[in-house]
Amino acid sequence: MIALIVRRTGLTLLTMLVVSVLLFLIFETRIDSIALSVLGPYTTVEQREIWLEANGYYDPLWQRYLRWLGNALTGDFGTSVQFKRPVNEVLWPRLGNTALLGAVAMAVIIPLSLLLGVLAGMREGSVRDRAISFVSILTTSVPEFASAMFLIGIFAVALDNLLPGTTNVADGISLRELILPAAVLVLYDFGYVARMTRASMAEVMGTQYIRTAILKGLPYRRVILRHALRNALIPPFTVIMLQFNWLLSGVIVVEVAFAYKGFGYLLLEAASNDDIYVIQACTMVAVLVAVATQTISDIGYGFLNPRIRFGR
């Protein structure tokens, strides 16, 4: 177990290092556009050159990279060119907002999709299974931007602002403002997880030990709860861990539609303004989340399924 964590940590650091080098190389070709996005399109080339010079952009690439790396190791991700303030000051509150949105969405997605998946998978091909599958496929196939507009149209416009279609940052984020964005995420995602759970449940229900348990006269309830569930929930567990990953990128559309100032929105803004240090920091966070959830999923797997043991 410890060996696994150590190995994973090493792998994480290596991935982050490689990704950061790649990003730096990509942005190397776009140095001019950084000055442009800072000083605006209506400045002269001379003014931009003076700015680049003054801000150390003409130093060799490796020098700038090492400088960034040294600072990043001490937790200083540099200064955002777009916001003209430290990346840390911008990034963490935004990440906090997305965590809040994600937590609300996940708090609905996980119980809902597991319940529906299990209910559907218990009797494959039954009317209940068909109904649940139909709804799941339907909601999952509607893209987020469409369902966002749809919900805004119903709840904010047609129902005369029953629920706000935008997030007013003037006085913090209220629960009312979280409902619609979270609903979009739930609509898009629950069907997928439910379908995965259903498949896994259906497979378990078809195994011989379940058949044996039923044939030997155990109550159906007991068969499901004691024998089927634990085995059926292993694949959905991995899928759910992957959803955290998906959230970081999947929220972009939702956050833009609802003007929700989160991580996804920040990443989009940074990308469209060549805000290299913000992009770097966002990417580091994304890599960290990806590997961390994967590690948790692997460890959790071990607990859920005693047959799996990690080699040294």
């Binding site: 416009v157 279609g165 935008t166 997030t167 007013n168 940052v169 833009v256 609802f258 003007a259 100032k261």
Partner: peptide, 21 residues
Amino acid sequence: IAYIDFGEGTGPTVQALLAGE
């Protein structure tokens, strides 16, 4: 006077205007 940010593009900002925010 309070300037309140609703992000890029006019969509969400107009939403806020319609909602009286």
